[in-house]
């Protein structure tokens, strides 16, 4: 065993982990334009703004769980999900799949990881190729990865996948535009499932769907999880859906996880002021003619994040310390972590 592997089996390693990310960062910046490149040649390179979408983030997904990932648009939750599936490479840090660093995997291991971790996308209109039939969309992964012996087997697998997501196999010759939004999302799920993954990253999979169709797709996710023993990272901005489906919830703000807790505990006693705010904002049919008391301000630009705790400009409880010192994530109860100065042991 290499010394690096020893680090991964350090005491804090979660035995049930299917996927871990450690000190994971992702930065985006643009390429310098010609004038800037020329200035660079004479040693006067101007500074190009860098956007940090995910900031030195640690997170463990346990085998068989549904981990809800919640945050406002622009907080980096999709970028994190895409890095977990290997679609986008991280700028820094490591991703461990079944305890093995993905950047140190052999070709064969890497292929196994790529197939085992699949993604379901938000927009069922943009994520299906309009010029391919459903049969072609679903058989492509099988052909590319040589998962089947012959055409007959591919055809069987496609029919089975359509059945599994509640679509009639006779639909295989239709094109995506012939389906409703809910049906398209089922096709997207079938495409992810056809390579027998064990971990699905679901990026806002129901946000684009109607209320009655959302319930159908949530039920499909619940069924599939029970039948296939799947693990989900369920990215959503809808806390009521996350409450229903997730075992644990991670709350993300400006590239960092600010609170992580088992679902019932998070909803019963949210620790971070941001979580408290989000919970208060869930629209509910139980409340009538409420006097809204919303959080002030908007998510700051990740190009120019606030000093100290990044939530301090919007936090009703912010102190001078919050403005200058960045809070570190600490355990406040078994399985619960929060990054907030208010929760420091006195």
């Amino acid at each position: 065993m290499s010394p690096r592997n020893d680090i991964t089996s350090a005491p804090d390693r979660d035995e049930d982990a299917i996927l871990e990310v450690r000190r994971l960062s992702r930065r985006f910046s643009r390429k310098p334009v010609l004038a800037e490149q020329l200035l660079g040649l004479v040693g006067k390179a101007p500074e190009i703004p860098v956007l940090t979408a995910v900031k030195s983030l640690d997170l463990t997904v346990r085998r068989g769980e549904v981990l809800g990932l919640v945050g406002e648009s622009g907080c980096g939750k999709s970028t994190l999900g895409r890095m977990m599936t290997g679609i986008n490479p991280p700028s820094e840090g490591e991703i461990l799949y079944n305890g093995k660093r993905t950047d140190e995997m052999s070709r064969q291991e890497r292929l196994a990881y790529t197939l085992a971790v699949q993604m379901v996308f938000q927009d069922p209109y943009a994520s299906l190729n309009p010029r391919q039939t459903v049969g072609e969309i679903l058989s492509e992964p099988l052909r590319v990865h040589n998962r089947c012996k012959n055409r007959a087997e591919i055809s069987e697998r496609v029919d089975a996948a359509l059945n599994e997501v509640g679509l009639d196999p006779s639909y295989r010759d239709r094109y995506p535009h012939q389906f409703s939004g809910g049906q398209r999302q089922r096709i997207g799920i079938a495409r992810a499932l056809i390579v027998d993954p064990e971990f699905l990253v679901c990026d806002e999979p129901i946000a684009a769907l109607d209320v009655s169709i959302q319930a159908q797709v949530i039920n499909l996710f619940l069924e599939l999880r029970a039948q296939r023993a799947l693990t989900y990272l369920f990215i959503s901005h809808d806390l009521s859906v996350v409450w229903h489906i997730a075992d644990r919830v991670a709350i993300m703000y400006l590239g960092e996880i600010v609170e992580l807790a088992p679902t019932t505990e998070l909803f019963d006693s949210p620790a971070h002021p941001y979580t408290q705010t989000l919970l208060a904002e869930i629209p509910s049919v139980k409340r009538r003619r409420r006097a809204f008391q919303p959080v002030k301000g908007e998510l700051p630009s990740p190009l120019n994040p606030p000093s100290g705790c990044t939530f301090h400009p919007r936090c009703p409880m912010a102190t001078d310390r919050c403005r200058s010192e960045r809070p570190i994530s600490r355990t406040i109860a078994p399985g619960r972590t929060v990054a907030c100065h208010l929760h420091e042991p006195s």
């Binding site: 406002e72 648009s73 901005h237 809808d238 806390l239 705010t277 989000l278 208060a280 904002e281 869930i282 629209p283 006097a291 809204f292 008391q293 919303p294 959080v295 002030k296 908007e298 998510l299």
Partner: peptide, 11 residues
């Protein structure tokens, strides 16, 4: 809009 912004606008 995000739920936080939705809350502000509803208010």
């Amino acid at each position: 809009l995000d739920v936080t912004i939705q809350g502000q606008i509803l208010a």
